[in-house]
Design a protein around this nucleic acid. Structure first.
Lengths: 335, 335
DNA sequence: TTGTACGCGTTATCAT
DNA sequence: ATGATAACGCGTACAA
């Protein structure tokens, strides 16, 4: 701490022998300042180690130069999901050239919505990216109606107003996965779906059902919650109910890794006995034995696009429609 | 947006028929306000949907009610590491009861230090938690000397001033892992170490070396960079150099998963041919086949403690020494 | 090109 | 117990 707190514009002005206003202009890169004045001011700034006070600036400009990334769930799962990590990476890289900072809002405990709602409403950020998994209560709806630029990381379930969102085509992605299983000759193809209150759960199941129906094959469905444990349980139930299954489409890589393990423990060879296709192409996909054939979604790109859209909206653009990206089937060893 | 921006203290005061100052008192829970006045003000607040402006508040109180969690590396690996996720979880849970928000500062590209240094210096946060992996340049040193409450997530390499930090006893942790390998009869025990410019790399290697030396056995060392790829390469080199190894201590679970895969591909049975011990006990440990025996570190607890220490320092406490936590060997199937 | 002066929404001091 | 009023540090018309 330097004696009397951090230096202010005023002090810089005094040292540089100019007015506060001029220093402000230099700091903000106004073109209408004499080069020599600029030099003098910059010298003073360096000498004092001046750095602008954002609070004061925000107060007058009504811009905070920070955006929130909101996880409206107490879900620590979100963090262990490589999906989130990838998106965060994309978001932060896109935000980097900007002066914007990233504020992470996590719902600490179930039902503590109002905490971040207040924060968002308080004008502490210029906009927000919502990482929503569940279409829970009416939180998403409330978020969507906030007087603030907002982008959703997935089509928010249960929201009836037009909102900007970025997502992959989960239905089509699931289709490619299941179609691949059929293409390699599998007929008893089951799925481990995600929860139906998540876009990812709902749409991927739809894709599976569609393909099976078109092929005239029965749908064999169990549900997991996108955790390894959930995947394990679902696989066990599936093996009990359909011991003769020869193909398995799993709605996430994390659940798929558990499925592979259970299959192995139960003496099923992958892919010869049971072919397995996952969804995500996360880092996990290459860590399993055998390596996972999976439906890739371009997570970093999604994150980057989320940030771009948000910045555009903050800049005044009126974007309120979903953007859908394509998936790609990555064939490895499990199917 | 309601006509004219968000309501201010002034407007609430007008509606409630009191002065600005009184409203402020109510908002901040001052005891010296008549209950009936409180009621009137709270009514007005609800009616207007008032929420205090943090920028204005921060300007006068000089407190921002937000803390930064800094990743002073462009390292996207940090995110895919479950270790980071766990700590983040612990930090955010501890911060929750507080009014403090979490600001995430990531170095977007190599060498862009000054960006977050300026931010931290600008008084935008009340304190910062540094998640540092590498003892790179003098960034850590600069961070340590910031006139701001700071806590490091690991003993920062190359910092010569006393700083607060939270870490596990990596040396002892590695010892228990290696000693276990010896205890189950392994003699050709190799290690995949992490980079030596990270505490985790350095100390865990030390633990390995110590045990091997005490046992009068040769140290067989290869280095990885804490990624799956690095682990894979190191394992291959190790198998080439020492085809007869029967024990392997890997400095991280992520690298260990890769090692397991390579060993399997090379026809080594785990644990019968080669016993493997990892480090972390991350979610990965139970996802492998066989499940990984590993040295657990209490990540969430570390994160929580980081936050506690930071809050204490912000509150005026003068903590500038490391805190070391114990690890625990979790025995599963790989050793 | 530069300086003056005002306002941003709060908290805190001092009267009342 | 409450109300004026002065900061807090900055941006920006407006004036010079």
């Amino acid at each position: 701490m330097d004696g009397s707190g951090s230096p202010t514009l005023e002090q810089v002005a005094a040292v540089a022998g100019v007015s506060r206003a001029t220093v402000s202009r230099v700091v903000n890169g106004s073109p209408k300042v004499l080069p020599e004045t600029v030099a003098a001011v910059e010298q003073a700034i360096r000498q004092l180690g001046y750095v602008p006070n954002r609070a004061a600036r925000a107060l007058v400009t009504r811009r905070t130069d920070s955006v929130a990334i909101v996880v409206p769930e107490p879900d620590s799962r979100v963090f262990s999901d490589p999906f989130f990590a990838g998106m965060l990476s994309g978001v932060s890289r896109t935000l980097a050239p900007t002066s914007s900072q990233l504020v992470l809002l996590i719902e600490p405990a179930e039902g503590d919505d109002q905490r971040f709602m207040r924060y968002l409403r308080g004008g502490h950020v210029d906009g927000a990216i919502i990482i929503s998994h569940h279409g829970r209560d009416n939180v998403l709806q409330e978020l969507a109606q906030l007087p603030l630029p907002i982008v959703f990381s997935a089509r928010p379930l249960g929201v009836d107003v037009p909102v900007a969102s970025v997502d992959v085509d989960n239905v089509a992605g699931a289709r490619t996965g299941v179609e691949h299983l059929l293409a390699i000759g599998r007929r008893k193809v089951a799925t481990i779906a995600g929860p139906l209150d998540m876009t990812a759960g709902l749409d991927r199941l739809t894709g599976y059902k569609d393909v099976m129906k078109e092929a005239g094959l029965p749908a064999l469905i169990e549900y997991g919650d996108f955790t390894a444990d959930g995947g394990e349980q679902a696989t066990l139930r599936l093996l009990d109910a359909h011991p003769d299954l020869d193909g398995l489409f799993v709605a996430s890589d994390l659940m798929a890794t558990a499925a592979l393990r259970v299959l192995s423990e139960r003496g099923r060879r992958v892919p010869s006995d049971v072919a397995v296709v996952g969804f995500d192409d996360s880092v996990l996909a290459t860590m399993t034995t055998p390596k996972l054939t999976t439906v890739r979604q371009p997570v970093e790109q999604l994150g980057a696009r989320l940030a771009e859209i948000l910045l555009a909206k903050i800049g005044g653009a009126n974007l309120t429609s979903p953007e859908i990206y394509n998936t790609e089937l990555i064939i490895r060893d499990s199917a």
